[in-house]
Computed example of a mutant assay.
Amino acid sequence: MTANWKDINKPSSPATAVTAAQVANGPVIPPQQRLLTYSADEWEGFVEEWAYYCLTANYKHVQRFSGAGDMGIDVAGFVDDKRLQGVWDNYQCKHYDHAIRPSDVWAEFGKVIWHSYSGEYTIPRHYYFVSPRGSGTSLSRLFSNAEKLRDELIANWDKHVKVAITSKQEVLLDAKLRAYVDAFDFSIFDAKTALQLVGDHRTTPVHVARFGGGLPTRPSSEKPPQVVAVAESRYVTQLLGAYGEHTGTTLTDPSALSVPKLKDHFRRQREAFYEAESLRVFARDSVPPGTFESLLDDIHDGVIDTHDATHADGYEKVCAVTKAARDMQITANALITCTKPKDRDGICHQLVNEERIRWTRP
């Protein structure tokens, strides 16, 4: 038998040059796709994180329940201090290789009915099934028809529910419990999709840490007001003292600056401070807590030897320290991709405000 040979064609080249980030990390995986790779425990952790950062305006407390005896509660949002005895919502986490089917969750309906019937907690205001693949067609139809959902649950009670609520006993649908089920408001049940959660999560400071994809565009900073603000008072006082050392005069007010070089330097330093303050706000909204503070520490560690060296006067010290900050090689901090040279000057003044460095002699 004669073998058939076929030449392998050269693959087409990528449309654009490969970036360093692509070489280091590979292609970006969309968040919804990444969530499919999570374990059930990782999925619960993500839902807890989403609830904490995205729902705090709705709740006084957010709590994750785990392990045996969770009574069918995964992540709960509490409106008041009464918690399970007050107004609350339940987020029931499910992570399957398919969209949620009614057969996957009959027991979950039974749990909330049984434990609220038994007085373990009040009936939740809302009960959401949260799954990366969402709810399937059959379950979605039941969510839109509370009466049919009740009927289907009753029909499946003996087969799927009575032995699955608790390991301590079978929960029989006797006349008293059946009356409770008949009066139960099944409209509290619904589902949330991964798309909804990711859309909310995208606005949080922990989104890029979990999913990558780069930081959002940093907005422009405010321009310094004409009058020095209270938040500037310490570093401005130190700057004026540094200028006074340089000129051999006493300066207590910016309006007294008469040397053009110093007036221009003062203007630039105030602009730098406001740039750094805008970076602080951007960091608060875009990266995990502590990221900006870590950048401050990096700058401090990089300039402290220059700061402690001997300088002719305070002005020369300011120039030397801010130059050292601009010349630093910082690669690890997440904010470094969106920082500007002025930010580093401004961070030095923030360090003065925090009394970690100073521009004048003690």
Rank of each mutant, 00 (worst) to 15 (best):
L295D: 01
T339Y: 05
D158G: 07
S66N: 12
A21Y: 15
S140N: 12
T339R: 03
P27N: 15
L153N: 00
P102L: 08
E48Y: 08
R218T: 00
S66M: 13
R101C: 12
R178I: 06
T2Q: 07
I347E: 04
H126E: 10
K159Q: 04
R101P: 06
V230S: 14
R101H: 13
N58E: 12
A320Q: 11
K340T: 07
Y180T: 00
C319D: 03
Q33T: 12
G346F: 09
P362H: 11
D327L: 12
P225R: 14
Y315S: 10
V303H: 10
H207Q: 08
S221N: 09
A324V: 02
E49P: 03
A51C: 12
L139H: 02
G45Y: 15
L335R: 08
R83N: 10
W5D: 11
P124E: 11
H201K: 13
R270A: 03
D41K: 13
I154L: 00
A15N: 09
E316V: 01
A164N: 07
D345K: 13
K111T: 04
I154Y: 00
K148Y: 06
A194E: 02
C93K: 02
H126Y: 03
R270V: 05
G134M: 14
P260Q: 15
F129S: 01
S233P: 03
A209E: 05
V171M: 03
A68V: 05
P289F: 09
P288R: 07
T331F: 14
M71T: 01
F266S: 07
D41L: 13
A3C: 05
K192G: 11
A276L: 10
V87D: 09
E293P: 10
C319Y: 06
G314N: 02
A283S: 11
G314V: 02
A3N: 06
N145M: 02
K162T: 01
H61D: 08
C93F: 03
F65S: 13
D343H: 14
C348N: 05
P288S: 12
D70Y: 03
F292T: 05
T2M: 12
L197R: 10
A20H: 14
Y243C: 11
Q196L: 11
I304P: 01
R141M: 11
A57G: 10
W5I: 04
K317P: 01
P102W: 04
F189L: 06
I113K: 01
Q350C: 14
R133H: 04
N25E: 09
K82H: 10
S167I: 08
R268A: 09
V181D: 01
T122W: 00
A51K: 14
E120S: 10
L351F: 12
H246I: 01
P30H: 07
P11N: 15
A325D: 10
I100T: 06
P11I: 13
D74I: 02
D343L: 15
A276K: 09
K60A: 15
D285Y: 12
Y59C: 11
V281P: 03
F292K: 11
S140T: 08
Q22T: 09
N333C: 09
E152G: 00
F143H: 03
Y59H: 11
D343I: 11
G119I: 03
V228N: 06
R202I: 06
M1S: 07
T56R: 15
C93V: 02
D190P: 03
C54V: 13
R284K: 15
S12M: 13
T306S: 14
C319F: 10
E170S: 09
V206F: 04
I113L: 13
D182P: 00
R358Q: 08
F211L: 08
L257N: 04
N58W: 07
D182S: 01
